[in-house]
Amino acid sequence: MEPILEVRNLSKEYKSKKIISDINMKVFKGDIYGFIGPNGAGKTTTIKTVLGLLKASKGEIYIEGKRILNDNNPPDIGAMIEYPSFYPYLSGYKNLLLYANVLDLGKKRVEEVLELVKLSNDKNKKVSEYSMGMKQRLAVARAFLNQPKIAVLDEPTNGLDPEGVRDMRDLIKYLAKEDGTTFIYCSHILNEVQNLCNRVAIINKGKILVEDSVNNLLGKNNHSSLEEYFMKKVGL
Score class of each variant (00 low, 15 high):
Val140Asn: 09
Asp179Ala: 11
Ser85Cys: 12
Asn9Tyr: 06
Leu190Cys: 05
Leu69Lys: 14
Pro148Cys: 13
Tyr62Lys: 01
Asp71Glu: 15
Val50Ile: 15
Asn198Cys: 02
Phe183Lys: 05
Ala176Gln: 01
Glu192Phe: 00
Leu145Ala: 06
Gly59Cys: 09
Thr45Gln: 10
Ile184Val: 12
Ile61Asp: 00
Gly164Lys: 09
Gly159Phe: 04
Ile77Trp: 09
Tyr14Ser: 11
Thr181Ile: 05
Met134Ile: 08
Asn216Gly: 07
Gly65Asn: 10
Gln194Pro: 04
Tyr174Arg: 13
Thr182His: 01
Lys107Ile: 02
Ser21Ile: 08
Leu53Ile: 14
Lys107Tyr: 00
Leu114Met: 11
Ala151Lys: 07
Lys43His: 05
Thr44Glu: 06
Val152Glu: 07
Pro38Leu: 03
Asn215Met: 04
Ile203Ala: 01
Lys207Thr: 15
Ile19Arg: 11
Val140Gly: 13
Leu103Lys: 13
Leu138Asp: 07
Ile20Ser: 03
Pro75Asn: 12
Tyr14His: 13
Asp122Phe: 15
Asp161Ile: 10
Lys118Arg: 11
Glu60Ala: 10
Asp31Asn: 15
Gly30Lys: 04
Lys18Phe: 11
Ile61Phe: 03
Lys149Arg: 13
Tyr83Trp: 10
Val234Cys: 06
Ser131Gly: 09
Ala201Val: 08
Ala201Tyr: 01
Val193Met: 00
Glu60Met: 08
Lys123Arg: 15
Ser187Pro: 06
Ile172Ser: 05
Ala151Thr: 11
Ile4Lys: 02
Ala41Met: 01
Ser224Asn: 14
Glu111Tyr: 00
Met132Pro: 07
Glu64Met: 14
Leu54Trp: 11
Tyr185His: 07
Ile68Phe: 02
Glu227Gln: 11
Asn198Ser: 08
Lys55Phe: 14
Ile81Trp: 12
Thr181Cys: 05
Lys177Pro: 01
Glu111Trp: 00
Glu112Gln: 13
Thr181Trp: 03
Ser91Tyr: 04
Lys94Trp: 11
Lys58Arg: 15
Arg137Leu: 08
Tyr83Arg: 11
Asn124Tyr: 14
Lys107Glu: 08
Asp179Met: 08
Ser11Leu: 05
Lys126Asn: 02
Asn221Arg: 04
